[in-house]
């Protein structure tokens, strides 16, 4: 499903990853556990071509990441950052933002589906009318997750997405994402999240290694 082969990554002259490998199968829920600054978030960014690799290759499904395939790969992956940017003035526009782009234009979700997705993530319907600036960090994280769910993605890259959530909201997010049809590569320090993941990967001496759950 996602293959990192021989990946090398340097940022500002500092080596973060060197000839690292990681294979993620369909339905795997993987968390990367490593100290800050070791390249966890950068690995997620590599997969969607948001950071330049120093060497190696990334494959998602049958597509090898290149300038020809990057748009297709991005359209298949739901990428959610730690402090997601909503990219629109109010929450409803932010939620529907991807459907203003040509690639998703014809898949605009029905209102009922939007309400169900909000409910699934413990969000009130009234949040749709709020200005994006006025909602909390935790709400922002869940709106970004809702947006990816509405896009019907089955591959998620999630970078510390429960960091601003209360226990009930966190449980709701875990229920929404840890499903057999979803493949998940995540970065987290949260014990509940790590427990929910079937695989734990660590970064040791610039390599990606499996750790016991």
């Amino acid at each position: 499903m996602i293959h990192f082969d021989n990946i090398s990554l340097q940022i500002h002259g500092q080596i973060l990853l060197e000839q690292a490998h990681l294979q993620i199968a369909e339905g795997d829920h993987v968390v990367i556990r490593a100290p800050s600054g070791s390249g966890k978030s950068s690995l997620l960014k590599l997969a969607v071509g948001a950071l330049p690799m120093s060497g190696g290759s990334v494959r998602v499904h049958d597509l090898e990441l290149s300038d020809q395939t990057v748009a297709e790969i991005r359209s298949r992956i739901g990428f959610i950052g730690q402090e997601p940017t909503l990219g629109a003035e109010n929450v409803k526009d932010a939620l529907l933002l991807p459907f203003t782009f040509k690639v998703h234009q014809h898949n605009k979700p029905a209102e009922e589906l939007i309400f169900q997705t909000l409910e699934l993530l413990h969000l009130e319907r009234s949040i749709l009318d709020k200005p994006s600036k006025r909602i909390s960090g935790g709400e922002k994280q869940r709106i970004a997750i809702a947006r990816a769910l509405l896009l019907n993605k089955t591959i998620f890259l999630a970078d510390e997405i429960t960091s601003a959530l209360d226990p009930a909201s966190k449980a709701a997010v875990i229920t929404a994402l840890f499903r057999p049809e979803i493949t998940l590569l995540s970065v987290s320090h949260d014990p509940d999240w790590i427990n929910a993941c079937g695989r734990i990967v660590e970064i040791n001496k610039h390599k990606l290694t499996e750790a016991a759950p």
Partner: peptide
């Protein structure tokens, strides 16, 4: 100055011109 926002658009499927 808004690189994260710009990358978000790309991640959500926008073409460069979008």
């Amino acid at each position: 100055n808004n690189e994260q926002e710009f990358m978000t658009y790309l991640m959500l499927g926008a073409t460069l011109s979008e």
